[in-house]
């Protein structure tokens, strides 16, 4: 479903990703863990080409997005992203946030988009907020709306870049529960997170990124019980006090 071949990314002289190879099969729940600045965001943003790799190939759903004139916008409709800062459209109501792209980009009818929007609002427990504006919601509620917005694209892949890092502690759980619920379905998921509990509970696979390199790659058990590298052990000892 997702394939990164020898992907490198430079920012000036800084090398944020170093010849990364990664294959994510359909339906897998992949969690990316790593210290700050290790390249987690850069990696996940390469999957939908918000960052263009300096070299290497990104192949999503059989389409090479790094090829000349690749249909990037078309593929992005299938690859929904949830951002750390939610990035809801502040001038649109919750319902409009969720229906805008399906109507304008995908050409779904307004009725159909609205009906499925309510379905996903139910799923994240926010049906009664449909007519509110993002600024009228708490952080946790905004992120759940962002997840509903992503779901209403009926994506094949969902990308989460630290979806709970901007939230007050008491709101983290409500968002994680929604994501864990999604993880029980068949969708392919890539999640950057510092929530180790989430990784243990929802991930099929964990990769540990350090300084632009994948140091660990395996099951959550492998990662937490039997890490191979000293860097990983050091990171885990700091984070799992």
């Amino acid at each position: 479903m997702i394939k990164l071949v020898d992907v490198s990314k430079h920012f000036g002289s800084h090398e944020a990703l170093k010849h990364v190879n990664l294959e994510v099969p359909t339906g897998q729940k992949l969690v990316i863990i790593g210290p700050s600045g290790s390249g987690k965001s850069t990696l996940i943003r390469c999957i939908n080409m918000l960052e263009k790799p300096s070299s290497g190939q990104v192949i999503v759903d059989g389409v090479d997005l790094t090829a000349l004139r690749a249909p990037v916008a078309k593929v992005r409709q299938q690859v929904a992203m949830v951002f750390q800062q939610f990035n809801l459209y502040p001038h649109k109501t919750v319902l409009e946030n969720i229906t805008l792209a399906p109507i304008v980009v995908c050409g779904v009818s307004r009725d159909e988009a609205t009906e499925s929007a309510y379905k996903y609002l139910d799923r994240v427990g926010l049906r009664e907020k449909a007519d509110k504006y993002p600024a009228q919601l708490s952080g946790g509620q905004q992120q759940r709306v962002a997840i509903a917005r992503a779901l209403n694209m009926h994506p094949k892949i969902m990308l989460f870049d630290e979806p709970t890092s901007a939230l007050d502690p008491e709101m983290i759980q409500e968002v994680l529960e929604v994501i864990i619920d999604l993880a029980h379905g068949g969708i392919t998921m890539v999640v950057v997170t510092h929530e180790m509990g989430f990784a243990k509970e929802a991930a099929d696979r964990v990769i540990f990124l350090d300084d632009g390199l994948i140091l660990e790659d395996g099951t959550p058990e492998h990662f937490f019980e039997n890490p191979q590298h000293d860097r990983t052990k050091l990171f885990l000892s700091k984070i799992l006090r």
């Binding site: 939908n48 918000l50 916008a73 078309k74 992005r76 409709q77 690859v79 929904a80 992203m81 951002f83 800062q85 990035n87 809801l88 459209y89 001038h91 805008l100 792209a101 304008v104 980009v105 995908c106 917005r149 694209m153």
Partner: peptide, 23 residues
């Protein structure tokens, strides 16, 4: 983040401008 959210949903640059950024 607004432009990124829009293009990540498949909006073209001009579409993102028209529906998200310019309003």
């Amino acid at each position: 983040g607004q432009l990124e959210a829009a293009v990540s949903q498949g909006f073209s640059y001009v579409g993102a401008m028209r529906y998200i950024i310019i309003p």
